[in-house]
């Protein structure tokens, strides 16, 4: 049974002219247990909308989301979400941020402390627990967000452009950290990115999304051994194929707008 099943999602938003803009157009896909799946697509193609529906933060117009075979409705808390923008609570220390989800779920303070201690050493941020978010680096903030999402052992971790807006060096480092943590925790990850290199470097499988109304237009199983080399021939071949697909899609989109 797939970890996550998305079946026939449709979503439209009202636009300024009294009409509606269709954002998601019959989106269906599966994510398998312990898989690292990436979705790449042009900016503004509805990836965030898709993730919010999966995480139960938004209602689709129609379609269903199943996690472990069970229908996941609005307000469920089975998905750990790493948001696109910085989302640490500035009034909480690193440790208090990480423990937030446990507090919401009513876990006892001793147990919270134990679990956060474990995860702080997993993300290698010992000694920074009592810092406030403005006292840690951007990369450390990202890792803290990751830990905050992971600590409740969600069935699925989704990341919405989680590693964008970082300098190249930090991004490379965090990609490797992300992979390490994925391996060590055995999590299932749904990773959204507009960065094809990143997706190829990290994923078991990559889905390509079109411009809005967004459809799934391609699927690549990345059959390369790990650890991968960013500039290896294998990576570059996948990269070229995916970029070509996105380029053709872009031309079609422009033609649609022109016509």
């Amino acid at each position: 049974m797939p970890k996550l099943s998305v079946r026939g999602l449709y979503k439209s938003y009202p636009n300024g002219n009294g009409g509606v803009t269709r954002v998601l157009d019959d989106i269906s896909f599966d994510v398998h247990d312990a898989e690292f799946l990436s979705i790449v697509g042009p900016s503004g193609c509805g990836k965030t909308t898709l993730l919010k529906i999966i995480a139960g933060l938004m209602e689709p117009d129609s379609g269903e989301v199943y996690i472990d075979g069970t229908r996941a409705k609005m307000g469920h808390s089975k998905v750990g979400y790493i948001f696109q923008q910085e989302s640490l609570f500035p009034w909480r220390t690193v440790r208090q941020n990480i423990e937030f989800g446990l507090e919401v779920k009513g876990v006892s303070p001793q147990e919270r402390r134990r679990l956060s201690g474990e995860i702080i050493s997993l993300i290698r941020m010992e000694g920074l627990e009592d810092n406030l978010p403005h006292e840690v680096s951007g990369g450390q903030a990202r890792k803290t967000e990751m830990a905050r999402s992971l600590i409740t052992s969600p069935d699925l971790l989704v990341s919405d452009e989680g590693l964008s807006n970082l300098d190249a060096q930090t991004r490379n480092y965090l990609q490797e950290e992300f992979l390490r943590i994925w391996k060590e925790t055995g999590s299932t990850i749904l990773f959204v990115s507009h960065n094809v290199d990143e997706a190829v470097f990290m994923s078991d499988r990559i889905l390509v999304m079109s411009n809005i109304p967004a459809k799934m237009i391609g699927e690549f199983a990345v059959d390369l051994p790990r650890p991968r080399e960013r500039a290896s021939t294998g990576c570059l071949e996948y990269r070229a194929k995916i970029l070509e697909m996105l380029r053709i899609e872009q031309e079609k989109a422009l033609a649609r707008q022109g016509g």
Binding site: A55, G56, S77, F83, F89, P90, R92, F100, E103, T152
Partner: peptide, 26 residues
């Protein structure tokens, strides 16, 4: 910040928890 509220909701927080742990401190 709306994203702070989304974070709380992603953990299944109800309105009372959101008021208490997000709205008030921020």
């Amino acid at each position: 910040n709306p994203v702070h509220i989304d974070v709380a909701r992603s953990f299944g927080a109800d309105e009372q928890v959101i008021l208490h742990k997000i709205v008030l401190p921020s």
